[in-house]
């Protein structure tokens, strides 16, 4: 028997009698204190929006969306150190793939690697589950993808999702207003609307867009401007190929 004061939320990841892993649940709770990220997948693109961390006029705003490779971007919610560790790992995996195959990695493989990496932190004593969730946006030869990764090492693929503080507010808007035929401009506007329900800070918005095996990161104004361009290009390519 364990001593009385030795609860199920000690530094070990230990099952409670009803089968829960409290430490992992605490990690998920840490994510819910992080600034939110919203992701949307359209027909031939996927994108994410987040507000830069802009807490003090004396401190430079910190970027939230990270480029992993030419076709993949990641934004996280939770502890910055933990997010950075995951970004580093994702970048490393992307380059490992390139060294072996001389081609960029596909989105599913990199997400799978990240989830495996995170999952290990739920299995061993002496480590703590990472307090970070990620939105992964990418495009490869199988299409455009939107994934979410959470602290228990769960990989979720979907059309629209949000992580971080008040994400249920954002998800509510997404559930109401998401349509399969959203074009890129509409998707950006919807994502920002959903984000604003969760994050009312008014800090500058970053947008990450993945389409045609490329990922680009930009500010909101430029994204809306470029959205038309990119959308027109996709339409034109489709006409020429059909």
């Amino acid at each position: 028997m364990m001593p009385k004061e030795f609860g199920y939320d000690r530094p070990f990841t230990l099952y409670t009698p009803d089968g829960r892993l409290i430490q992992v649940e605490y990690a998920a709770e840490a994510v819910r204190h992080g600034s939110p990220v919203v992701g949307i997948r359209g027909k031939d693109f996927s994108l994410m929006v987040a507000r830069m961390k802009d807490t003090d006029p004396l401190i430079d705003p910190v970027e939230k969306i990270h480029i992993v490779d030419e076709n993949i971007g990641i934004a996280g919610a939770g502890y910055t150190g933990d997010i950075d560790l995951l970004i580093d790992e994702a970048r490393l995996e992307a380059q490992r793939h390139r060294v072996i195959f001389e081609d960029p990695i596909d989105v599913r493989s990199i997400v799978n690697h990240i989830t495996q990496f995170m999952y290990q932190f739920t299995r061993y004593s002496g480590v703590r589950p990472l307090g970070a969730a990620l939105i992964v946006v990418g495009s490869d030869r199988t299409g455009s993808h939107l994934y979410q990764v959470d602290p228990m090492g769960l990989m979720i693929s979907g059309k629209a999702m949000a992580i971080g503080m008040n994400c249920e507010n954002a998800t509510g808007i997404l559930r109401e207003e998401y349509r399969d035929d959203l074009n890129m401009e509409e998707a950006i506007k919807l994502a920002v609307k959903a984000l604003s329900k969760a994050d009312e800070s008014g800090a500058p918005v970053e947008v990450g867009i993945a389409t045609e095996s490329r990922f680009m990161k930009t500010n909101l104004e430029n994204a809306l401007k470029r959205a038309k361009e990119i959308q027109d290009k996709i339409k034109k390519d489709k006409k020429e190929n059909s």
């Binding site: 990270h66 480029i67 992993v68 490779d69 970048r91 490393l92 380059q95 490992r96 390139r98 060294v99």
Partner: peptide
């Protein structure tokens, strides 16, 4: 690969 990692 190394150069890209450093650049990022």
């Amino acid at each position: 690969a190394e150069a890209k990692l450093i650049e990022l």
